[in-house]
Write a protein that binds this DNA or RNA. Structure first.
Length: 470
RNA sequence: GGUCCCUUCGUCUAUCGGUUAGGACACCAGAUUUUCAAUCUGGGAAGACGGGUUCGACUCCCGUAGGGACUACCA
């Protein structure tokens, strides 16, 4: 079966570096969406051929990141390092076919050649390309691919369109290092072929590699996968996304209180669009997504927009789930989570979630409700309690104690009725009521705050602040 | 330096030869008001530049400028 007839298989192939870049996350998302869209499979391969950098915990970071994003692979991860034998086999085959050669250039010779080549504006060449082995068989050497020096290579990119390369510009890349370890460009080709990948969808930074990799496929007489190179994600200032732009690892987004479904939606809109649709479900994204529609230009991360999208999903999220996330955030800061906090959170979250752009903000908006009696009033709150106002709040407390229904609408009515009976506007006691209820912390509108706190807690807080003799 | 990619409001995008160039976020103004928000109404805001092709270009071609990637015995 040819690639176009086989069921589609995509993959994400991150290298374990200790964190998972947000760009990797988006690449994973696009591969996942495309696989789902076509009813194909989405695979994961850990590119751990660099033994120096790869650690078990770095691998775990990737697994955790993907799991958090909800982009789990359809099969267990393939570890590239474990395929090293297979990679060497392919190199032997290439050697046999005369499509690779051993190169004994020293580091110094290579550096000199690099300089000459750069000055001449051409790719570096090895003198061993067409030379017999030197005497003394055990000299250290690498194995290079023997690329054609004439002709051209076409990469028919799914997002960029046809991209033509002159073979003379492509250097003879190293396949096997002098210690016998396979290199990236060889390993990807072999692994993608062995894993049956039909669509290689990855970052823009690999577009140039695609030409060289194409040559390897051809040398092995393997069928070429389709390539799709996604433009990179840049920081808000247009420069390559880096630490100074704030978060760049998916774990950081999680800690900052972004919801995974919000990240999927936002990331999908970064470099891809479907008409005027902005907020959509996974099902819709899967139904609509196609690599062909990916935008060619790099996109910038926009914190304000992520916040907006996140707020949308916070509004939609289940209150119990949000309460747990808030508790996690509090615990991370070392707060002791008292008995009953989860219940209080669930009571207050419906009243504050609309204003929260992140779980961290939601946590701050919940603080007033979680505070233990007697709550401490900040200076500004204290200054709101003039004697006359205290008298009025006392009368209000009595009035509220008689309320049989404790819901926002009924409380609103009660508050208005009280203002009327006092012959004043809400401004005469509203701020003060808020002060004794929240101590000065942000809180929802009064009826909401009273309702969220509940009758006993509300009346108790009023009593705490008003019965105090001064 | 060489090779390759990219270029519509501040940002993400729609448009796929004929539109008052649309939407979203952000921004500004107003309304509301019991803090902060939220909400409602209204508003400003774009085809990098220069040449072509065409009856007609944001849309096609060439060039310039700017941005980016690659140019490793990293991935």
């Amino acid at each position: 079966m040819s690639v176009s007839e086989r069921p589609i298989v995509t993959r994400i192939a991150p290298s374990p570096t200790g964190s998972m870049h947000i760009g990797t996350a988006r690449t994973a998302l696009f591969n996942w969406l495309y696989a789902k869209h076509t009813g194909g499979r989405f695979l994961l391969r850990i590119e751990d051929t660099d033994r120096e950098r790869s650690t078990e915990s770095a691998v775990q970071v990737i697994l955790d990141g993907l799991a958090w994003l909800g982009l789990e692979a359809d099969a267990p991860a393939v570890f590239q390092y474990a395929q090293a034998e297979r990679h060497r086999e392919v190199v032997d085959e290439l050697l046999l076919r005369g499509r690779a050669y051993r190169c004994w250039m020293t580091v110094e010779e290579l550096a000199a050649e690099r300089e000459i080549a750069r000055a001449a504006g051409r790719a570096i060449r090895s003198p061993w390309r067409d030379q017999a082995a030197p005497s003394g068989v055990n000299l250290p050497h690498v194995v290079r691919f023997k690329g054609p020096i004439e002709g051209e290579t076409l990469v028919n990119d799914l997002v960029k369109g046809p991209v033509l390369f002159q073979n003379r510009d492509l250097d003879d890349l190293v396949l096997l290092r002098s210690d016998g370890a396979p290199t990236y460009n060889l390993a990807v080709v072999v692994d993608d072929h062995d894993m049956g990948i039909t669509h290689v969808i990855r970052g823009d930074d690999h577009l140039n590699n695609a030409a060289r990799q194409t040559l390897i496929y051809q040398a092995m007489d393997w069928e070429l996968p389709a390539f799709g190179h996604l433009p990179l994600i840049h920081g808000p200032d247009g420069a390559k996304l880096s630490k100074r732009h704030g978060a760049q690892a998916v774990g950081e987004f999680a800690d900052m209180g972004y919801l995974p479904e919000a990240m999927r939606n936002y990331l999908a809109r970064l470099g891809w669009g479907h008409g005027d649709d902005e907020l959509f479900s996974d099902e819709q994204a899967i139904a609509w997504f196609d690599v062909k529609d990916v935008v060619k230009a790099p996109a910038r991360l926009d914190w304000a927009k992520i916040a907006h999208v996140n707020n949308h999903y916070i509004r939609l999220a289940d209150d119990g789930r949000l309460a747990d996330l808030v508790i996690d955030a509090m615990a991370r800061e070392g707060d002791v989570i008292a008995e009953g906090v989860r219940d209080r959170l669930i009571a207050v979250i419906p009243f504050v979630k609309e204003g929260a752009k992140t779980v961290l903000e939601l946590r701050d908006l919940c603080r007033f409700a979680v505070a233990e009696r007697p709550i401490v009033l900040n200076d500004k709150s204290v200054s709101l309690l003039a004697p006359e106002t205290r008298e009025r709040l006392l009368r209000l407390a009595t009035r509220l104690a008689d309320e049989t229904i404790w819901t926002p609408p009924s409380l609103t009515v009660a508050l208005r009725a009280f203002a009327e009976s006092e012959g004043v506007g809400m401004g005469k006691f509203g701020p003060a009521l808020r002060a004794v209820l929240s101590g000065g912390l942000p809180a929802p509108d009064l009826a909401g705050a009273l309702s969220a706190l509940g009758r006993d807690e509300s009346l108790g807080r009023m009593d705490d602040a008003l019965s105090r003799v001064e």
